[in-house]
Amino acid sequence: MTIKTTFTALTLGATLAAGTAWADGSITYAGSGGGLGQVMKGVFDDPFTAETGIAVNALATSDRASALKAMQVAGKVTWDVTELNPIEYATASLSGWLAPLDWSTIDPSGALPEEAKLPDAGIAATFSTIMAVRTDELPDGKQMTSWANFWDVETFPGGRALQNQPIDNLEFALIADGVAPVDVYTVLATAEGQDRAFAKLDEIKPHITAWWTAGAQPVQMLSDGEVAYTSAWNGRITKLASEGVPVEINWNGGGIKASYVAIVKGSENVETGQQFISYMMTNPERAAQFASMVPYPGMVKGLYDHIPAEKGAMMPTHPDNVGKQFVTDAVFWGKNLGPLKERWEDWILE
């Protein structure tokens, strides 16, 4: 009796699960959930469903490279469209876990610049790891405008934080050491360049109050007065400033990163997936609506024509800001993260 009941329950469970996964006219989107997921639902998912009748099943996901690997190993692909951060994209792309995209159907009118259209992914949004400054902690009459200033603990006393990972910090160290942002990856590709970056990090290490691991931490530390200067993600700082905390973004030497969208290899909904990617990426009004709610702008041409000037100034790809930063090289990190991460772990425990 018990066994029979259990089997019935299991079969029923399996049927229900399969029913959700293979329902007609729906796609599964692996996003970040949370506040961002809410905004996307209002701007992209619900209007898309209203126009096309295709339901968007948005999931809150993390560790997506790992999940993609699991799907490919198991041969059971449960996501159609996925969001990817630069490292996840590099890993997935180099490992061949993404389906090729047909840009002539996604962007027939050429609304997107070429650099947003990769063979197996599109750049749907951009964000930047910038330096956030508590303006009330600055010494009188001084402005912190560069990573060299961040390293200058004599002129700018006060707590500091950086993220606990080699990505961004090796670049920041080289920039603080005088390397021009455009040359960062040429220098970092050499062993001497890597030694130079770690040597520069040695200088700042004793002055770092905390090495953060989650995006909410620098926000918390800035608002609690735990640190005066920290690296952080731009959108979080815009939000913190709007809550009345005296913080400012310094764009100089920030690391712009792309948030990619891609179709998982083995997805049964490639066509509808492409339709959804097109809907997300190619309409400047819609993209502007999204970017004014979360300051992570897309790449569509004419985006800033639809965004009020003061909001635009808070975005990493705004013409006033974009030139001050470097673009994080996803492929460099995809190839070099393993050894550099090990070196970083040794270094951080020293």
């Binding site: 560790d63 490279a65 790992s66 690997k69 890993t91 490992s95 993260l337 393993g338 991460k341």
Partner: peptide, 9 residues
């Protein structure tokens, strides 16, 4: 957790 997310299973 770091090694899992780097897919070094």
């Amino acid at each position: 957790s770091g090694q899992v997310s780097q897919t070094n299973w």
